[in-house]
């Protein structure tokens, strides 16, 4: 071996470190595992050996090796995506170069469509792979559909609320209109009486009196608009007492009643239906 044969270790660590290691080793004797000091690296021998075994005189088509133009540099080997991308790039570069070289050498590159032969992975295995891909795709589709449905439902709720509000508004507006017409009628302004107003009025209190002869309790003092608004604002809006009590109306309100729920086990209904029913009296006596 020649002079420039040196150990890898020497290039890695400085003299100071080496002496420090030696001192530590002397002190600890053989209690501690001693760091390995020499790593063999015979560059010349390796190069010579490579020349010896190389089959370089053979044509390229026998070897089919391609070396990438740029070295693969991956910052973090743990970063799967980056690493695999670099490998892919290396592969695709090699394929493009190799295809040119192979075609230049006159050898076939791609398999003709009518050439069937055994594959590395069996048909059953490939079917499994396809199945997995399909189920994966389906899963994605399903989740997307569900997401869309959720969004739609949210949106639908909004629409429903808007519709309800609109209906209420319309009702309110209609009631307001009726109230104003009534007011006008009551104040005795009969000058511009048209058919509509008569209609409303007759509908409203048809059973009491005729429109012209309105007197009595309906004719009591009504506060002005400003007063009414102030009353609403400062709490003079009628009686507050007993508002939470049941009334005949609320007692009769069965809109929230649900037969199904009422008969469920938790609400005092029988948990299971009795299958054997008691026969009628006549039948029972006949059976005696």
């Amino acid at each position: 071996m020649s002079d420039d044969e040196h150990t890898y270790e020497e290039s890695l660590m400085g003299e100071e470190e080496e002496t420090a290691l030696e001192i530590a080793a002397l002190q600890s004797k053989d209690l501690l595992p001693q760091p390995k000091k020499e790593f063999a690296y015979h560059r010349e021998a390796l190069s010579a050996l490579r020349g010896e075994i190389s089959q370089g005189k053979l044509s390229w088509i026998q070897r089919c090796d391609i070396t990438s133009t740029t070295p693969v540099v991956v910052d973090k080997a743990e970063d799967d995506l980056d690493r695999e991308l670099k490998f892919y790039q290396q592969g695709i570069e090699a394929v493009i170069l190799a295809k040119q070289k192979i075609q230049k050498a006159g050898a076939p590159f791609s398999r003709p469509d009518d050439y069937f032969a055994e594959m590395v992975k069996s048909d059953t295995h490939m079917a499994k792979i396809r199945q997995r891909l399909l189920s994966q795709q389906k899963g994605i589709q399903n989740s997307e559909e569900a997401k869309k449905q959720r969004e739609l439902r949210k949106y639908g709720k909004q629409i429903q609320q808007e519709k309800l509000k609109e209906r209420e508004d319309r009702k309110k507006a209609a009631l307001d209109k009726i109230a104003t017409i009534k007011k006008r009628l009551r104040s005795g302004d009969m000058g511009d009486n048209d058919g509509f107003e008569i209609d409303v009025d007759s509908e409203d209190d048809a059973h009491t009196q005729s429109a012209s002869g309105k007197r009595g309790k309906d004719n009591r003092h009504v506060p002005g608009k400003k007063r009414q608004l102030k009353n609403d604002k400062f709490g003079f809006g009628g009686k507050k007492r007993g508002m939470k009590r049941n009334t005949a109306e609320s007692t009769d309100d069965m809109s929230t009643f649900n037969v199904k729920r009422n008969k469920s086990a938790g609400f005092g209904g029988s948990s299971k239906k009795s299958k054997v029913t008691r026969p009628g009296k006549a039948r029972r006596q006949r059976g005696r």
Binding site: Y41, R43, E44, L46, S47, L49, R50, I53, S54, R63, C64, D65, I66, T67, S68, T69, T70, P71, V72, Q90, G91, E93, A94, V95, A98, R111, A117, E118, M119, V120, K121, M126
Partner: peptide, 28 residues
């Protein structure tokens, strides 16, 4: 998937040419 027994293209990283031991490994 590929044909059973078809020939591969061998693609090497350029780093293989940087060190003598890697060159030997590449050849092997």
């Amino acid at each position: 998937n590929c044909l059973k027994g078809s020939r591969p293209v061998l693609s090497f990283d350029a780093t293989f040419d940087s060190e003598p031991y890697l060159q030997l490994l590449k050849e092997m």
